[in-house]
Design a protein around this nucleic acid. Structure first.
Length: 620
RNA sequence: GCGCUCGUAGCUCAGUGGAUAGAGCAUCUGGCUUCGAACCAGAGGGUCGGGGGUCCGAUUCCCUCCGAGCGCACCA
């Protein structure tokens, strides 16, 4: 056998092997060296533990169940509230009487943080030593700085996050944008709670569509156009094929045949495919860079064709699936209520689900993940049910790994799905440039003296922030109706409000330095931190919750919880800003305390937005 | 036809067994000689799609109907 120089495909396999090796090293390093902030050290946790212990002592019981801390409604006195319904049920007592008992018990013995308690109906309203709590919260944030909010709740775990996954030879549309944005946010959030992350861009670089594309390229391909504007030309070819195939159904058969040849690694077709892939990746890199996204691996579906084939043979041997007598396709019969599906087509080629199965096997073998997240739209709900059910049945997926489909709603335009085939897709780059241009207009309008270089930089942060935030501020399961106007409406409750709040704080701190020669934190001892107004304490209370909010966002795969939290924080800050002037605060200790508060708010805003993938400018 | 998801203020959305269901936008009323008004304070606006059920208590859980979206093997 003659052994020529490595083929295009072999080179690609080498690239993958290198990136995989690098990630494995990263995971190993993190496992050995990463330092964690202990979740139990946070004030929000300490307070809960203290309350739980007070409840237990008051009642003389061992287990107080889960303590849920909430703020009492505005008309009720107290810093925190506790409802006793569940505990009452467990102890078979009347809720009102139990609440009274707990309140009396807490009253009788003052704790480190708890000062007093009052029963109102079935609620116990708790008053804390505000000045101590305030001091502890701020000093902790100032000490931990950008590490504030990190925790060890998932220390030592590995998560593979499969997101973005655009299709080669098509422009990235706003549909894949959701996966990209949500996936990136989840990667950040998971990492913050202790996970080691494998960010994998599972490119759609295989499938019958490439038969169609190659067919179209061979029929109508234009070298000049392809060199000038690769993605546009490839997209046009793809759309043209589908228009043509409507009139000439036989073209579809020919496309399928071309794909079958591709799967057999026909050198001529593989070379063409590799070229389309490389051109597409170059194009995607531009958008990813603007969004600040870097993947650990870009292992496309194409990588798994061989493994998929072997896997199907294996499953046939073991009887997990069967060959259909008539068609010759490989079938998996209905599993419980999940409809049956194919693992191999009549012509012997693989399917999306087959390759995904091989991918799953590969990921488990290679990274030993505790969790695998598939950030893919809800149109694929059934596929993931099928994938997971079969993977469990065939023992590719065991109890050591949890595979989750992070489903999300679709971006609909006029109540309908957008499609490349129909040409109704909105391209991500168009969206970004429109948003950035709109931001430029607004920035220039608000601040005509801004320098051109600053304008470019800031409008990029504001424009991209608007797009990203618009997506992440709402819970992911619901459909988003696409609306240019709303998306680019930067003045309303969007990232710009949070960015503006951050900028204002920066401005205050800068001014403090100018007027007083410093913000005074260096001269402030921990026990000198103090506050005067309720609005200051309310802010600290909100700051205290940040670590729990992150942990909750991770546990429920809900980035929007962070967005909602940050909006509440900014609202509280702007209210405080209106009430209190730092520059006019005469007492240097109080002034420094307020500077500490502002700095903490700024820090949490920046970190929180950072988790969502939104950057903050220093001024705007 | 079957399956999954969604339905909360005029609009966009939070809340999900517990105290009087909350934000933003829009509307109206106030607040810049005062740290950036891209802001703040306040007002109006709700049969939480309809109807049943479970529960001391349901917007939240169950059933049913209505409406919307998405799927239902040789696409991804």
């Amino acid at each position: 056998m003659n052994k020529p120089s490595p083929t295009a495909f072999e080179k690609y396999e080498l690239e993958v092997a290198e990136s995989v090796e690098a990630v494995q090293q990263k995971i190993k390093r993190e496992r050995e060296n990463r330092a964690y902030v202990s979740f139990g050290d946070y004030q929000c946790v300490k307070l809960r533990v203290e309350i739980a212990s007070a409840v237990k002592k008051s009642l003389g019981i061992r287990d107080a169940g889960d303590i849920r801390l909430v703020s009492p409604p505005p008309h009720v006195f107290g810093d925190f509230a506790l409802d006793v319904f569940n505990l009452a049920k467990k102890l078979k007592e009347k809720p009102e009487a139990l609440a009274q008992k707990i309140a009396d018990g807490i009253k009788a013995r003052e704790g480190d943080l708890i000062k007093d308690a009052f029963a109102v109906g079935a609620f116990v309203n708790i008053e804390t030593h505000k000045e101590i709590l305030y001091r502890d919260i701020l000093s902790q944030i100032l000490e931990l700085k950008e590490h504030y909010g990190e925790s060890d709740v998932n220390a030592g775990r590995v998560a593979v996050i499969d997101y973005s996954a655009p299709n080669i030879a098509k422009p990235i549309g706003v549909g894949h944008l959701r996966s990209t944005i949500i996936g990136q946010a989840l990667a950040n959030i998971y990492h913050k709670t202790g996970y080691s992350i494998v960010k994998d861009n599972h490119l759609g670089d295989w499938g019958t569509q490439f038969g169609a594309l190659i067919y179209a390229y061979q029929e109508w391909g234009d070298e000049k156009k392809l060199a000038e504007n690769p993605i546009t030309e490839l997209k046009d070819l793809y759309v043209r094929f589908h228009q043509f195939a409507k009139e000439h159904p036989e073209a579809k058969d020919q496309a399928r045949e071309l794909f079958a040849r591709l799967e057999k690694r026909d050198p001529e077709l593989i070379a063409l495919w590799k070229r389309f892939r490389d051109l597409s990746l170059q194009d995607f890199a531009r958008v990813y860079q603007r969004l600040g996204i870097e993947f650990d691996t870009c292992i496309g579906e194409s990588y798994f064709t061989k493994q998929a084939d072997q896997l199907v043979d294996e499953c046939l041997d073991k009887g997990f699936c069967r060959k259909d007598e008539i068609s010759g396709a490989v079938v998996v019969d209905q599993i419980e209520k999940i409809p049956s599906f194919l693992l191999r087509k009549q012509d012997g080629t693989s399917l999306y689900l087959t390759r995904d199965l091989a991918t799953l096997q590969f990921r488990i073998k290679t990274f030993h993940p505790h969790t695998i997240l598939y950030v893919v739209g809800n149109e694929q709900d059934l596929n993931f049910h099928q994938l997971f059910a079969f993977a469990k049945r065939a023992w590719y997926l065991s109890g050591n790994t949890e595979a989750k489909h992070i489903s999300f709603g679709m971006v609909l335009r006029d109540g309908k799905k957008m499609s490349t085939r129909e040409g109704t897709l909105i391209e991500l780059e168009d969206l970004i440039s429109q948003s950035v241009n709109k931001s430029k207009e607004i920035l220039l309008h608000k601040n005509p003296d801004i320098l051109p270089r600053e304008l470019d930089e800031i409008s990029e942060m504001v424009g991209l922030g608007a797009i990203v935030y618009n997506d992440l501020r709402q819970s992911r399961v619901k459909n988003i109706s696409f609306d240019w106007k709303r998306m680019l409406d930067l003045e309303s409750g969007s990232a710009i409000y949070l960015q503006y709040s951050y900028v204002r704080i920066n401005s205050i701190l800068k001014k403090l330095k100018e007027v007083y020669g410093g913000i005074g934190l260096d001269k402030l001892e921990k026990d000198e931190i103090a506050f005067e107004y309720q609005s200051e304490f309310a802010l600290a209370k909100q700051l205290m919750l940040f670590p729990e909010i992150i942990a909750g966002a991770q546990a429920t795969d809900s980035p929007h919880r962070i967005a909602v939290y940050l909006e509440e924080l900014a609202l509280l800050f702007n209210s405080f800003y209106d009430e209190v002037s730092l520059l006019k605060t005469e007492n240097p200790k109080l002034r420094a305390s307020r500077a500490a508060l502002c700095q903490s708010v700024a820090l949490v805003l920046k970190e929180g937005l950072g988790l969502l993938g939104v950057k903050v400018p220093k001024k705007m």
